[in-house]
Amino acid sequence: MVAPSSLPFDPVEEAARKWSARWDDADAMAVATSIMRVQQLLLGRIETALRPLNLTFARYEALVLLCFSRNGSLPMSKMGQRLMVHPTSITNIVDRLQAQEFIRREPHPTDRRTTLVAITDSGREVTERATQALVAVRFALDSLEPDQMKSLYDLLRDVRLHAGDFPEDHGIRTWPNAFTETDSP
């Protein structure tokens, strides 16, 4: 699905052309600008797929995180760390999910200073439906073939690694081989 554009040209290429006449490293500027634009496009399509379920991508990510947790609950602070968001943002996400009755807040059994966020049955159900909606649009990456997705993932992973987003793994991938069906985990 291609969104109609009001421009008869690629604005990133045009910016790169003008940039190179004035400053160095137009290639890096064009790549960074393209990544930012693609993020906007992906988020727009993802949010459109989630809108019928009254979810945003941020709330969906929080629900998935809780589904992946061992007991279906996590401390709010740990959720913020794992989702890489500010404490204020995780509070807002949790408030909205609680209002929708997709999660509940619970006291921690051994640390009274900690609040646990626990997913409810309706939260699990909406997470399944939301995941089906996102898989149906391939997380807005339906224009890419599996080998292109793997290449893009590897390139972006290198950027994240170099930025210190996670520790270097010395070539050992703990993430399963999602891009190839013939590889064993």
Rank of each mutant, 00 (worst) to 15 (best):
T33E: 04
D183H: 08
L141P: 01
L42W: 15
R59Q: 14
T48F: 13
Q132T: 15
R51H: 01
A26L: 09
I172E: 04
F68S: 08
T33G: 02
S184V: 05
W175N: 13
R70F: 14
V137Q: 03
D25N: 11
L161C: 09
M84W: 06
P4S: 03
S69P: 14
W19A: 11
Q148H: 01
P87N: 07
E106K: 10
R70K: 13
E13P: 01
W19L: 10
F57C: 13
P4F: 04
I103N: 08
D121L: 11
T174C: 04
I172M: 03
P4V: 01
A49P: 01
A49W: 03
A133P: 08
P75D: 11
R45N: 02
R160V: 01
L65G: 01
R157H: 14
G164Q: 03
E145W: 07
T56I: 06
M76G: 15
S5E: 11
P8L: 08
L42K: 14
S34T: 15
F102A: 13
L161Y: 09
D27I: 09
D165L: 15
P8M: 05
T110V: 05
F179D: 09
P107S: 08
P52T: 03
A49Y: 04
L74T: 00
D95E: 01
E168G: 15
T114F: 11
K18T: 00
L43N: 00
V12D: 10
E168L: 08
T180R: 13
A133C: 13
D27H: 12
D10G: 04
A62P: 02
F68Y: 06
M149L: 15
L66G: 07
L161P: 05
Q148Y: 00
P146K: 06
R138S: 05
T182W: 12
L41R: 14
N71S: 13
T127R: 07
S184E: 12
V12N: 14
L66M: 09
S69G: 13
R70Q: 13
L161N: 08
A49C: 01
E128C: 02
D142M: 03
H162P: 00
E168T: 08
L50H: 05
G80E: 12
I90L: 01
Q40C: 03
D158C: 07
P11I: 03
I93C: 05
L65Y: 04
